[in-house]
């Protein structure tokens, strides 16, 4: 598919700064113990950069993303987008989950349009809905309800819905995790295409090392309990990247070593 520029906006990204953030949760039982989910996490993402966070499950990746989205608040530390402190969720930071979470009572078109409705700009920007439906290649499915869609299609709708409000940062929480291998690779290209068209700042949480290497400018590796950023790996391979290139494979085994899965 050919990249289409939406509304002629070339660069809409914004930088993200996380400074010394901790987050703890009260335990669900009566012990009153608090679990430390994030312990002194600091990171910076440049405007328009594509950064992946990988790490084993329960290392606080999703917690970090929720904090940046503004759906949750840190126990201490500071989160900023550009120069603004994050004080709650808004349309500047889009979020796509592993489950597409499409509103089942709305058709594909209305799902994609829901961001415009929420922002009360439907009248001015309704024409963009069709552009976004085309952008994710779902022209024939605009008036279909979500349960008729395959997993990949549903996730494309979720991407279009998150992008239509022109967020400055797009947070992706294992968005391709539930897809089969082929659909996933196809969708990786699609996400990259959307990113290159818009240069939205992308922050991708994944547990798929190949995905992280294939897509990112930088990879942050997190360790669990409490969640910390352990290592940062910068990648300067050219895109589209070759998944069987020696550099790719070398990097892959390096990361596996770091995550303690390497051949011992």
């Amino acid at each position: 598919m050919v990249a289409t520029f939406v509304s002629g906006v070339a660069k809409e990204g914004s930088s993200v700064h996380v400074t010394n953030v901790t987050k703890d949760f009260a335990a669900k039982d009566r012990t009153n113990q608090r679990t430390l989910a994030l312990d002194g996490v600091s990171l910076s993402v440049a405007a328009g950069e594509f950064v992946s966070i990988i790490g084993p499950s329960a290392c606080g990746k999703s917690t970090l993303l929720r904090l940046i989205a503004g759906l949750d608040f840190p126990s201490s530390g500071e989160l900023r987008v550009g120069s603004e402190v994050i004080s709650g969720a808004n349309a500047e930071r889009g979020l796509v989950f592993q489950d597409p979470n499409l509103f089942p009572w709305l058709t594909v078109r209305r799902n994609i349009r829901s961001g415009l409705v929420a922002l009360r700009v439907v009248r001015e920007k309704n024409h963009e809905v069709d552009e976004f439906i085309r952008l994710v290649g779902l022209e024939g499915f605009a008036d279909v309800y979500p349960h008729h869609l395959s997993g990949g299609m549903a996730q494309r709708v979720a991407l279009a819905r998150a992008l239509i409000t022109h967020p400055k940062v797009l947070l992706l929480d294992e968005p391709l995790g539930a897809l089969d291998a082929f659909t996933r690779m196809q969708m990786q290209d699609e996400v990259l295409r959307l990113w290159q068209a818009r240069l939205t700042t992308m922050l991708l949480v994944t547990h798929d090392i190949d995905e992280a290497i294939y897509m990112s400018d930088r990879i942050l590796i997190m360790t669990p309990r409490p969640g910390r950023i352990d290592r940062v790996i910068s990648l300067d391979m050219e895109r589209p990247r070759d998944r069987s290139h020696p550099d790719f494979l070398r990097l892959r085994s390096e990361i596996l070593q770091l995550l303690d899965f390497g051949r011992r």
């Binding site: 989205a69 759906l71 349309a91 930071r93 989950f97 979470n101 829901s114 929420a118 922002l119």
Partner: peptide, 29 residues
């Protein structure tokens, strides 16, 4: 109402009215 529907709506810029009338009520139908 599934919390994730509300989370999605919030990141789309939804205010309280949208959350009640366009998410919670349809979900409760």
């Amino acid at each position: 109402t599934r919390a994730s529907y509300l989370d999605v709506a919030r990141t789309l810029g939804a205010g309280r009215a949208y959350l009640i009338f366009n998410v919670a009520i349809p979900a409760a139908m």
